[in-house]
């Protein structure tokens, strides 16, 4: 992996010297994503899971029949006699969406390094918050309508809301920002 990292850096320097910005963006983002997955996946996932569980635990204190097991990344929702346990695994933390976002921001030509760090951190917070909203929507639908609506809540409603919010973030960061910059003549 170290050899790949060195080759990737050399390729980026090469593309930079040739002023091939688009290819530098594509290769840079792709490489960042791969190296993030390889080197920081476990740490990032674990910490995002902790934050999710911590906030859900706080929320859980105000909602009846909703219990959070933060150290195990589990939530339990009870309705009459039925019980459902959510297990927050790899795909539940929004880690892939976060890593792709970080990778793209790192190489997308938006303002300076401070702006990039700002966009990265606010993006992580935003995606995590939207993920929390997604989980709570599932919980509320199950509590209000019953276990038989779990599939509907999870795969239709919550999925759609998460999708809309995440796509909005990407649009706001990568498309709208670019349009605004062009209108004010930044580039």
């Amino acid at each position: 992996m170290m050899i790949l990292l060195v080759i990737w850096i050399i390729a980026l320097i090469f593309l930079n010297k040739l002023n091939l910005k688009f290819f530098k963006f594509v290769l840079g983002s792709l490489g960042t994503f791969i190296f993030l997955i390889h080197y920081t996946n476990d740490i990032l996932r674990e910490n995002i899971l902790k934050v999710l569980a911590f906030v859900l635990n706080l929320i859980g204190g105000f909602i009846t029949n909703f219990e959070v097991f933060p150290e195990y990344g589990m939530l339990t929702v009870t309705r009459t006699t039925e019980v459902i346990t959510f297990f927050l695994d790899y795909e539940c933390t929004g880690i892939l969406e976060i890593m792709v976002y970080i990778s793209l921001v790192a190489f997308y030509p938006i303002r300076g390094p401070l702006s990039k760090i700002y966009y990265m951190i606010t993006g992580i917070v935003y995606i995590t918050a939207v993920n929390l909203l997604r989980v709570m929507i599932i919980v509320f639908i199950i509590q209000g309508m019953g276990m038989k609506y779990f599939f509907f809540a999870h795969t239709v409603i919550a999925r759609l809301i998460f999708f809309i919010f995440v796509v909005t973030l990407y649009y706001r960061t990568f498309t709208l920002e670019h349009i605004v910059q062009q209108k004010v003549g930044v580039l």
């Binding site: 019980v83 959510f86 927050l88 779990f150």
Partner: peptide
């Protein structure tokens, strides 16, 4: 039943769309 389930964000489709946007 007792249900044990993961609650995936279904990242594949989302990331495909955002890839096109970017």
């Amino acid at each position: 039943p007792i249900i044990i389930s993961t609650i995936s964000t279904y990242p594949t489709i989302t990331l495909f769309i955002v890839f096109i946007i970017v």
